[in-house]
Design a protein around this nucleic acid. Structure first.
Lengths: 192, 192
DNA sequence: CAAAAATGAACGATTGTTCATTTTTAAATA
DNA sequence: TATTTAAAAATGAACAATCGTTCATTTTTG
């Protein structure tokens, strides 16, 4: 294997170890030595790939956030129906949050704890723009309540994070039928 | 002032300092020495009031959770109208989450990070029973969607945590009118 | 054989916790 | 009421362990 490839793999292993340990232990308890050990390297090696721990977290966050939004908007091309578009995007988001549990949990933990640089947080928000645009279009057409983007997000997207946690803890299963009802709850909360 | 009173005040200072530092720095970065300093005592003193750091967190969580649910269900006596009852409880919960920002943030952080004993988490959930009972009643009367309590919670209550964070970060204000619309979104998501 | 990658020991700082010592408290005695 | 005294509360220094990070050295690469 080429050195380039091996370096890529090592970086991926470090990112993966970080996600796993931050989820299990929290930011500060996920020490550089634990991360290194789980990734199969020595602590010093991390500093060949990342400037320091904060940079590691920031990069992992942006990596995962990008993967999430890429997944969410894959194949999305604005159609004529706001409702159809929303359903498409919502279900992609739901699929990600209910299958990539660890990554979704990591994102949520970054969003609500102070472990992230404000700059990286702002950078991460940008990627949701297509959804915000869709909401604006829906409001102009009188299909969606005239609420702020914060409220629309809080009611139609944020609840999925609760389900991610419930599923991760094994206290709640979401069948295909549940998911349909869950989508309906999301749409009902923001539709006019 | 009596010694009993002084001890109570000191315990309150420790609880308050813990909430503040865990919110700002996270669980592990909120060290015993920082907590002690903010509460105006010496680290060793904490161990007169709490067994260890884990016990401190558990107790603070249960304290705050109890305060929250006491506030939420204050003056609540089941009337004949499920919808009226839900509105009453929802607005009390909203009032708490939008005014006691620090306590609400702390609870949310406990709920989604691994800093809490599973036993304390289970203990904390129990206090929401009146709301679960109301939902069951509403479902029996055909007023509320036949969803699991997890989904009902995820859509009608959990979104408020997002607003707590937005308000704390100063990126979002909730006027009295907004709150009414927010309630409507909550109700719309679970009503039949 | 030079360059790049990885190592692992070491740094000072800080962590959670303990404990002998000192200070404060409130009741008992004068 | 003033003094004594035993218990309770609080202190702060000290513990081993671990933290994030650095760097001279070794190993691997092309």
């Amino acid at each position: 294997m080429s050195q380039r490839k091996k370096s890529q793999l090592k970086r991926i292993a470090l990112v993966s170890a970080t996600i796993s340990l931050v989820n299990d232990d929290g930011f500060h308890a996920a020490s550089m030595s634990k991360i290194a050990k789980l990734a199969g390297v020595v602590p010093g090696t991390i500093y060949l790939y990342f400037q320091n721990k904060q940079d590691l977290i920031n990069q992992v966050y942006l990596d995962v956030k990008k993967e999430f939004t890429t997944f969410a908007f894959e194949n999305y091309t604005s159609s004529n129906s706001v409702q159809d578009d929303f359903e498409l995007i919502w279900k992609r988001i739901a699929q990600f949050k209910l299958t990539h549990l660890d990554k979704a949990l990591f994102l949520h933990q970054c969003d609500i704890t102070p472990m992230l640089d404000e700059e990286s947080r702002q950078e991460g928000i940008k990627h949701l723009q297509p959804l915000l645009n869709l909401w604006i279009k829906g409001q102009q057409e009188g299909l969606i309540k005239p609420l702020s983007p914060f409220l629309l997000y809080a009611y139609s997207i944020f609840p999925l994070s609760f389900l991610t946690h419930s599923k991760k803890r094994g206290v709640c299963e979401i069948s295909e039928e549940d998911l349909e009802q869950t989508y309906q709850a999301a749409w009902d909360s923001i539709k006019l």
